[in-house]
C-alpha cells in the first residue's frame, strides 16, 4: 500500500518533496475537476475505503485528506 504522499505525487505528477499538509488544489496544476474525481476513486481503492459526499466536499487541502483517512483507522 502506498502512503498518501506517494499516492498524491504519482497521481498529480508532482515531486514528493513539494507535498505538505497545507497544499491545496491551487498549488497543483493537474488538480482539475475530473482528475480530482479520479484521485478520490484511486484513494478509495488504494485504502479499501468508501468516502461520503460530505467528506469529499470537505477536502480543501492535503491535510484534510489525511484526517479523513486516519479517522477510518487507516495508517498512512
Amino acid at each position: 500500500m502506498r502512503n498518501l504522499t506517494q499516492l498524491i505525487a504519482e497521481h498529480f505528477k508532482i515531486p514528493i518533496e513539494t507535498i505538505s499538509d497545507a497544499m491545496t488544489s491551487k498549488d497543483v496544476p493537474d488538480w482539475d475537476s475530473f482528475n480530482y474525481l479520479l484521485f478520490i476513486a484511486e484513494l478509495e481503492k488504494e485504502y479499501c475505503i468508501t468516502l461520503t459526499m460530505d467528506e469529499v466536499l470537505r477536502i480543501q487541502k492535503v491535510g484534510d485528506i489525511r484526517k479523513i483517512i486516519e479517522a477510518k483507522n487507516i495508517i498512512i
Binding site: I40, A41, E44, T52, V56
Partner: peptide, 11 residues
C-alpha cells in the same frame, strides 16, 4: 475492477 460510489467512477 473498481467502483467509487461517491464520484460515480468505475475502473
Amino acid at each position: 475492477t473498481g467502483k467509487s460510489t461517491v464520484t460515480r467512477i468505475v475502473e
